[in-house]
Amino acid sequence: MNTFHKIFALCALLCIGIPAFAQFEERMNDVFYSTGKIKVVIAVAAVILLGILAYVWRLDRKVSRIEKSLRKK
């Protein structure tokens, strides 16, 4: 999996998220969206998703380094 593939996968993930966001637009445009605090939930979920993705990215780099050293042998 090279860098291009990773970025592509990330974009694909974000695209899957768009319908969910569209559904939220409705509620966010609600009169009380400022008091509804749904944004907080989205921020929290996004932080968790990004954090897990960053960790998986790191694991991926570790695996590539192992592959490289095995190839050298």
Binding site: G36, K37, I38
Partner: peptide, 15 residues
Amino acid sequence: VIFESIRNLMWHVPM
């Protein structure tokens, strides 16, 4: 005070 952000219970607490 918490309103919709009660949903964070399912995101923050399991961490």
